[in-house]
Amino acid sequence: MKKLILGMAIVASAFVFGQKGDVNAKLQEANKAAMDAYNAKNYAAAAPKFVEVYDLLKANGQDNKIYMYYAGLSQALANNADAAIKIYTDLINSGFTGVETTYTAKEKKTGQVVNLDKTTWELMKKNSDYSDFKTEQSKSIEPDLYETLASLLLNQKKGTEALAIIEKGLAKFPNNAKLKEAQTTAYLQSGNTDKFVAGLREQLAKNPNDATNWYNLGVMQSKNPATTNDAIESFKKAIELKPGFADAYQNLVYTTIGDDAKTVSDINALRKDKPDEASKLIDARRERFAKALPFAEAWYKSAPENLDAVTTLKEIYVVTKNMDKVKEMKAKEAELSAKAK
């Protein structure tokens, strides 16, 4: 989200409302209040003042939506998501780009460069007291509108709405990296898991050093028994890129162990009538726990105050028959449980 740059005065209004002192005074007062509130980081107070500036200008013939953009950004910074979403949506639907033309001229006597509205600038060309008449066009902020609105919608878990905005934005700005990244998240929120995975792979092809995307890919792969090994490799890659990545270690442990509740149920069902088959399952279970042990120890090392990490490590020590460590983890488990009360 771009930071507001509030160095501008309402130059054009000073000429348009030159004969309307009350209106112009209200306009300047509202503008000052908006900028003062923003600079003081009182964004909730700044937003309605920017709307007031916009309304005053519009009532007098100037539909300058840059002030609605300022209002929307202030609402976003104030965490008033619904209000910000409405303003940004209206701005996008109106075709607003933020492109503005600045008109300047130089006073020959003082050498001072002054800002003028277009009409006055044209008239001043006939005035011999001014020279160096120039125009400058500002950069479009339209990509920012799409990026910010997408982010606001995703933060509100409105994945389907976000996806529609993102696709609309990408139609205009197909190479926008932020929108492409947001699109991947929107696919997940809207339930398009296949497209989510495809998006992750696309992002990783562009940036293979993104630990979070490797982690997210591993999470999706771990949901399918056929891609369990792929998930393990993705989690390992995430950890390689981000040492101490506790969540990646956690998922690496769980993916390596598999559905242990089902395994225990199957073992219990076979113990009486098919003890040999039950023994095979027990041996395979112990082998998986042994493989998961170093990952669990690394998880605990990266998050020593995490009760789940402690409990999981304790259970792995039980299965692998390391009773001294079981005792140690039980003590740690009791300590953390006591702190949580």
Results as ranks from 00 to 15, higher is better:
Ser94Asp: 10
Gly95Met: 02
Phe96Val: 04
Phe96Asn: 09
Thr97Pro: 07
Gly98Glu: 02
Gly98Met: 07
Thr101Glu: 12
Thr102Val: 13
Tyr103Arg: 00
Thr104Ile: 00
Ala105Thr: 01
Lys106Ile: 01
Glu107Ser: 12
Lys108Ser: 11
Lys109Trp: 08
Gly111Ala: 04
Gln112Lys: 15
Val113Arg: 11
Val113His: 09
Asn115Thr: 10
Asn115Gly: 02
Asn115Val: 09
Leu116Lys: 01
Leu116Phe: 08
Asp117Leu: 03
Asp117Met: 10
Lys118Asp: 02
Thr120Gly: 02
Trp121Gln: 03
Trp121Arg: 04
Glu122His: 06
Glu122Ala: 14
Glu122Ile: 13
Glu122Phe: 09
Met124Gln: 11
Lys125Ala: 03
Lys126Phe: 11
Asn127Glu: 14
Asn127Trp: 10
Ser128Met: 13
Tyr130Cys: 02
Ser131Glu: 15
Ser131Tyr: 13
Asp132Phe: 11
Phe133Tyr: 13
Glu136Gln: 14
Gln137Glu: 15
Lys139Gln: 14
Ser140Cys: 01
Ser140Gln: 05
Ser140Phe: 06
Ile141Lys: 00
Glu142Thr: 00
Glu142Tyr: 00
Glu142Asn: 07
Pro143Phe: 08
Leu145Trp: 03
Leu145Ser: 03
Tyr146Glu: 06
Tyr146Pro: 01
Leu149Met: 10
Leu152Thr: 07
Leu152Cys: 06
Leu152Asp: 06
Leu153Phe: 07
Leu154Thr: 00
Asn155Lys: 14
Lys157Pro: 02
Lys157Met: 11
Lys157Thr: 12
Lys157Arg: 14
Lys158Phe: 10
Gly159His: 07
Thr160Pro: 00
Glu161Ala: 14
Glu161Gln: 15
Ala162Gly: 08
Leu163Glu: 07
Glu167Tyr: 07
Glu167Pro: 00
Lys168Val: 11
Gly169Pro: 03
Gly169Lys: 05
Leu170Tyr: 08
Ala171Val: 00
Lys172His: 05
Lys172Glu: 08
Pro174Asp: 01
Asn175Phe: 01
Asn176Gln: 07
Ala177Trp: 14
Ala177Asp: 15
Ala177Asn: 15
Lys178Tyr: 06
Glu181Ala: 14
Glu181Pro: 02
Gln183Arg: 12
Gln183Ser: 12
Leu188Val: 11
Leu188Gly: 11
Ser190Thr: 01
Gly191His: 03
Asn192His: 15
Asp194Pro: 10
Lys195His: 07
Phe196Thr: 09
Phe196Arg: 08
Ala198Val: 03
Gly199Lys: 05
Gly199Trp: 11
Glu202Arg: 04
Glu202Gly: 05
